[in-house]
Amino acid sequence: MTTWFITRHPGAIDWARAQQLQVDHFVSHLDPARVQAGDTVMGSLPVHLAADICERGARYLHLSVDLRAECRGKELSVQELRQFNARLRPFLVTALPAVTDTTPRTS
């Protein structure tokens, strides 16, 4: 079983190390095909990738941060991540069938 931490932010990597998380691979992008049943994937993934991870039988831990609007788009330090209550939360994400009819409805 492999543990992945997915982020492109150096502060998030520093935060994970400060938490003493056992991580096998820190990567900025994850190909879901590399994930196997029993793996753990941590980070802030788009919902469709999180669903792919869960469908493969892996565990998804979302890096949740209570970020203020004015701090978005800014690189955060370990201290700032702690200030904004960074934490890993398990999620089970399931994709539903695609909606094929995207024609706007009129009343």
Rank of each mutant, 00 (worst) to 15 (best):
V93M: 08
Q79Y: 05
S77L: 03
F84K: 09
K74M: 09
P90Y: 12
A95W: 06
R82S: 09
C71E: 15
A69W: 01
V93N: 05
V78D: 00
E75F: 05
S77V: 01
G73D: 08
V93G: 01
Q83N: 12
S77Q: 04
A95D: 07
K74Y: 06
S77D: 01
V65H: 02
S77A: 04
S77H: 02
P90Q: 15
N85H: 15
T94K: 14
L88R: 11
T100V: 08
L81R: 11
T94P: 04
Q79V: 03
R72V: 10
P97R: 04
D66K: 05
R82A: 09
V93C: 04
F84I: 07
N85G: 14
A69I: 01
S77T: 07
F84E: 07
A69R: 01
V99N: 02
V93D: 07
A86L: 13
F91S: 09
P97H: 05
V78C: 00
R82N: 15
F91M: 11
C71Q: 14
T94G: 08
L76G: 00
K74V: 09
Q83H: 13
C71P: 03
R68A: 15
L81G: 09
V93P: 00
R82Y: 08
A98F: 11
A95V: 08
R87G: 01
E70V: 07
R82H: 14
V78W: 00
A86W: 13
A86H: 12
S77I: 00
P90K: 12
L96Y: 05
V93H: 04
R68H: 12
A86M: 14
L81K: 10
L96P: 02
V93T: 08
